[in-house]
Computed example of a mutant assay.
Amino acid sequence: MSCNKLNTFVRNRVSEILDITSSRNWRHVPTHENPADLISRGVEPSAMKSLDLWWSGPKFLQQDITTWPNSFKDLETLPEIKSNISLIANDFTYNLDSKLIKFERFSRFSRLHRCVCYVLRFIKLCKTRSVLPFSFSPEELEHSLNIIIIQSQKESFSEYNLLLNDKG
């Protein structure tokens, strides 16, 4: 079993267990036969006194090992799996059709301009992992202004894409 996809805590515990045991000794106990699952299902402590599953374990443990359940939990369905988060950053100036920022949501141009600056800065930080000053540079402000102009031209003039593709 590959532990790389598991959350850190679970990965460390599983790795530790795998180091001291052999994987051929591992079996999956179905939840309806697992005494440990009784607690997570909210069984009252007073009811535990009369539960054979709690005191004796699953019935199959008293049978021959060849009759034991042999189903394994699919690693991809475990709740402890880390979610994959990835970022693909293209050159933002040439990939504006996605409408990342909706102009109509801004009541003032200055807010739109700053928002585009922040998005471009975020993309730059993801690509370079560098530290940038708090205030925007003149180049960043100019680049974001150009992005806004290009996007507004694309939205306003249907001929824009034809001219870019030399079909006009």
Rank of each mutant, 00 (worst) to 15 (best):
M1H: 13
S2V: 00
K5W: 05
L6Q: 03
F9H: 13
N12C: 05
E16G: 12
I17D: 13
D19R: 09
I20E: 08
T21H: 05
S23H: 04
S23R: 01
W26T: 08
W26D: 08
R27G: 06
H28R: 13
H28N: 13
P30T: 01
T31A: 15
T31G: 11
H32N: 15
E33T: 07
N34F: 12
P35Y: 04
A36P: 15
D37I: 02
I39K: 10
S40P: 13
G42C: 05
V43P: 14
A47H: 09
S50L: 10
S50A: 15
D52I: 08
W54H: 11
W54L: 15
W54Y: 14
W55Q: 15
P58R: 04
P58M: 03
K59S: 15
K59G: 09
F60T: 04
D64P: 04
I65Q: 11
I65P: 07
T66D: 09
T66R: 14
W68V: 05
P69E: 12
S71G: 09
E76C: 09
L78A: 09
S83E: 14
N84M: 10
S86M: 07
A89W: 04
N90D: 13
N90F: 05
D91F: 10
F92P: 01
T93E: 10
T93N: 12
T93H: 09
Y94D: 12
Y94I: 03
Y94G: 10
D97G: 11
K99I: 00
L100P: 06
L100E: 11
I101H: 01
I101F: 01
F103M: 06
E104I: 02
R105P: 09
F106C: 01
S107F: 01
R108M: 04
F109Y: 06
R111N: 15
L112T: 00
L112F: 02
H113R: 07
R114V: 02
V116C: 00
V116W: 00
V116N: 00
Y118C: 12
L120K: 10
I123G: 14
I123H: 09
K124P: 00
S130K: 14
V131G: 03
V131D: 02
V131W: 02
V131P: 02
P133Q: 04
P133Y: 03
S135L: 07
S135H: 09
P138F: 00
P138A: 00
E139F: 03
S144D: 08
S144C: 05
S152G: 09
S156K: 11
F157I: 03
S158L: 03
L163A: 06
L164D: 01
L164N: 06
N165S: 08
K167S: 09
G168S: 04
